[in-house]
Each structure stands twice: as structure tokens, then as C-alpha cells.
Design a protein around this nucleic acid. Structure first.
Lengths: 183, 183
DNA sequence: TTAACTATACCGTCCAGACGGTATAGTTAT
DNA sequence: ATAACTATACCGTCTGGACGGTATAGTTAA
């Protein structure tokens, strides 16, 4: 074996998870290198051993996003209930790995991180495409925006560790709306 | 006369406008006291004369938001086209004073500024109420989310001074969707 | 032995805010 | 009328802390 490691790099994933959590719970400003290292239970030196700088950390987080998003798009494309209903349902915060990276990425987009903005725009385009195939090009944007609005409101509702708001009824009304939009 | 001012405080409004612009165009991180003062054409000392600290600046900006929002809610309540159509149309970025404060406030909410989050939640509730009166309680949230989604996407689309994306067709499709939701 | 760390000290930069000073318009007492 | 004074509206500089990143010497586990 050529790439043999002396020890398994446990810190690397821990750091990435901590970064993600801090972005979600406290926003980008709180996700300093020191804070991330502290939450990961890793020394700052250890963090910088794996990620030479903050950009590298972001970059790997975006790779994680891409990977989970590809899986999600595939699932959406083949969802029995239809792409649109799948999209609405998956727009609600469920603390899945994809939800977590996505919100974390949103925090980066919020502070105008260019590469993140590019990827988010690409995702929106992919979603729109699948929605158009399901509900038609005219109603694709309304559906997309309903889902985005759900996300947007969940974001605004976040407090410091407050309880998750109840959105079940919201999803139901959105699905009802979706049926009406289908005509 | 005792309350008379020796000079008119021209810097005060200039500072507030500069703060707003920086929040909109470059995000919260870029809106430092130095940057705000520079853009306002005011010294840092002058800025801090009017606003003893950054919180005070935010606070006055939120007052501006409240004032313009009250006017908007009144207009929405009495809109001939109906509250929902008014809401959709006003959800598109048009560079009005209200649009500007609102987006500026969104930037603050993004970095988890608590007071801002509270006010934004209150606004959403007010909008929801008026929408429910127009389209019924069941379809109020779908409509609200469509408008929010429009805003959300406009936010993500911002680059550094890039051209405003064309959203006219989007609004039309949303208004069509609105009619279908009305049933 | 070597990769995967810990621990700590340090540097340059940026930022919020404090502070002292200055300019000017209005007020008052003479 | 005007000198003396006050209140307001600024300007320019400085400080203390945080942050991203570097460096380095030592420790642990496969």
C-alpha cells in the first residue's frame, strides 16, 4: 500500500463538521479558525495541518455540498410523487446532511463568497430544470420560489439554539397549492 | 429658542445612507465603521459623534425600516389589485427606499443580529395576516413564500455591482400562479 | 519511523471604539 | 453692538483586541 497513513485523520472530518455547525448556528462571523478548532476539539495547529487556510476549508465544504446535491437531484428526478412535490418536501429543514451543508453554504453566500454564490446559482438552475419538466416551464419558477421561501423563512426563524419551528402544516398547504398550480 | 441647532447635521443622514448602501452592495462584513465613514464622506470621529456605537447605527436603520414598512403595509391593505398581487409586485427589487432598507436589514439578519431577526419575524406575520385576508388562510403561506423566494433569489444573484437580473417574466408567472391559487 | 497530531508563541492587519481637539452657529450680558 | 460663552458638529489619532496565518518544538499511535 503506497498511501499508508501512520494514524487515521480523525480531526479532519471533525473540523469540517464543526465548521458546518458553527455556520449554521451562529453564522459566518462566528466561524473563526479558533472557534472551529475549539468546537472540533482540535488544536488550531491541528486544524491548519489539514486545511492550510480558511479558503481550503470552504472549498472542501463545497465539495461535500456538490456530492450530496448530486444525490438529491438524482432522487428528485426519479421521485414517484413527482419532482415538484419532492422538492417542496425536501425544502423543509430536517437536519439531514444535505440540509446542513446547504444552510452552511447559504451563510457563505450571504457574505458574498463568490465561489459559493456561483455554485448556489448552478443548483437553482438544476432545480428549475427538473421542476419545469414536471410542472411545465410557466409554473416552474412559482414552485421554485415557494420552496426557496420556505428555506428563507426557516433561516430567519433561527435563534441561538431555539426549538425548530413547526412547519408540517406549511408543507401541506404548499402541496395543496402545488396541485392547483398543476391546473 | 433653546433647542436650536448651531448647524444642520448633514453627516447623520449621509452616514445612514452609506451604511445602508454598503450592507446592500457588499454585505455586513464590509460595512465597517471606517468604510461607512469613508463612503459617507465623513471622518470616523464625525460618524461616532452621531452614532455612539455600531448598535446605535443599526437601531436607527431599523427605525427607518419600521417607518417605511408601516406605510407599505397600509398601501398593501388598500391596494385595488388586492393585497396578494400588491405583495408579489412589491417583492421584486426596484431600488425603492423600502427595498433598500429591507435588504440592508436582511443582511443584518443573516449574521444573526437578534433585534433585526425579531423585527423581520414581525413583518412576516403582518404580511401573512393581510395575505390571509385576501387569498384565504390556506393559501396565504404559499403566496408569502413565493414573494420571499423572489427576494431570496435576488439576494443570491447579487455580484459586486453586477447588473440587475431581469425579473419581469418571473413576476408575470407568479401573478398567473396567484390567480390559480385563488381558485 | 512517520503521519497525525498538541501546544504555544508570534506577526501583520483590521476593526470598534475612545479621546482630544477644532470650527461654527446661536445666546446672553453688558 | 459686541465680547464672552455655550452647544453642536464635526476631524484625526490612538489603543486594545480579534482574526488569519506562520512557525516550531514536542507527543502519540500505527
Amino acid at each position: 500500500m503506497i498511501g499508508t497513513m501512520a494514524r487515521k485523520p480523525v480531526a479532519r472530518e471533525a473540523v469540517l463538521d464543526a465548521f458546518e455547525s458553527l455556520l449554521i448556528e451562529e453564522g459566518e462571523r462566528a466561524a473563526t479558525l479558533d472557534a472551529v478548532a475549539r468546537r472540533a476539539g482540535v488544536s488550531k495547529g491541528g486544524l491548519l495541518y489539514h486545511f492550510p487556510n480558511k479558503e481550503a476549508m470552504i472549498s472542501v465544504l463545497l465539495e461535500r455540498l456538490d456530492r450530496l446535491l448530486d444525490e438529491d437531484l438524482a432522487a428528485m428526478a426519479h421521485a414517484p410523487e413527482g419532482a415538484a412535490a419532492f422538492f417542496i418536501r425536501s425544502s423543509v429543514w430536517a437536519d439531514t446532511p444535505l440540509d446542513r451543508v446547504f444552510v452552511a453554504a447559504t451563510r457563505l453566500a450571504e457574505v458574498a463568497h463568490q465561489e459559493t454564490l456561483r455554485r448556489m446559482a448552478a443548483v437553482q438552475a438544476s432545480w428549475l430544470e427538473l421542476l419545469a419538466a414536471d410542472v411545465g416551464p410557466a409554473m416552474a419558477k412559482p414552485v421554485l420560489y415557494m420552496g426557496d421561501g420556505l428555506y428563507f423563512n426557516a433561516m430567519l426563524a433561527r435563534g441561538p439554539g431555539g426549538p425548530l419551528p413547526e412547519v408540517g402544516p406549511d408543507v401541506e398547504s404548499l402541496l395543496t397549492a402545488l396541485e392547483r398550480l398543476r391546473g
